[in-house]
């Protein structure tokens, strides 16, 4: 474990908690893409099946359970409890255009053709594009609430910190996972446009960002 991976995990945890609390406190999921949240729940489900097969550390197990729990709680709040506030008209990204290619790629490019490994690879590829429905929805509505921008900032920051973690691990441990690195680079690049807006609009203090 290194400081970049730890802060990355904490940034990821912060993002997940920020979103969950925002929906819970405001009792509304307006402006939130339910599709992205379903994709994230799928990412955690397919990646953390090893909870059943191997124990890494208390930290590892605890975080995985928290991530899965919060992901499903968020999906529940969006599609059940606060369904009336779900903005389905703007959450129209065709997720099948993500899941099918990602599923196919996971079968073609992986480290090992075993069920657990293919599911892990699927989750890595899916996570890199899972935020697209949310970014698409923001571009359609033309604005995002401040809390949502903080959520996206921490979510983008987490994988950017993981990139540094992988540089660190390659240099000090000789460890690297090309699949995770390539997907992580793609994932972080998708946030670049948002990061620019977050930083520039953040300074001007306007409480809404208007992506191009």
């Amino acid at each position: 474990m290194n400081i970049f991976r730890l802060t990355g995990d904490l940034s990821h945890l912060a993002a997940i908690i920020i979103l969950l609390l925002k929906i819970w406190k405001t009792r509304s999921c307006a402006g939130i893409s339910g599709k992205s949240q379903v994709l994230f729940a799928l990412v955690f489900t397919t990646r953390y099946l090893d909870l059943l097969t191997s124990f890494i550390s208390l930290y590892n197990t605890t975080m995985k359970i928290i991530y899965i729990g919060c992901a499903y709680a968020t999906v529940y709040l969006i599609y059940m409890k606060f369904k009336a506030t779900y903005d389905g008209n703007h959450d129209t990204f065709r997720v099948e255009f993500l899941v099918v290619p990602v599923g196919g790629l996971a079968f073609l490019v992986n480290h090992d053709f075993s069920p657990l490994e293919i599911l892990w690879t699927f989750s890595i590829y899916l996570e890199s594009v899972a935020i697209l429905p949310q970014l698409f929805m923001i571009s359609k509505t033309g604005e995002a609430e401040t809390i949502t921008t903080h959520y996206l900032f921490f979510l983008g920051l987490y994988r950017a910190l993981y990139l540094i973690n992988w540089i660190w691990r390659f240099y000090f441990e000789g460890f690297f996972d090309m699949i995770a690195i390539v997907a992580g680079v793609v994932q972080t690049i998708l946030y670049c446009d948002f990061f620019y807006l977050y930083v520039t609009k953040g300074e001007s203090g306007s409480n809404k960002i208007n992506p191009a």
């Binding site: 990821h12 090893d50 191997s54 890494i56 550390s57 995985k64 993981y162 995770a180």
Partner: peptide
């Protein structure tokens, strides 16, 4: 068979 290294990252 290569020891199946557990994935220690989240």
């Amino acid at each position: 068979l290569e020891e199946d290294k557990p994935k220690d990252e989240l």
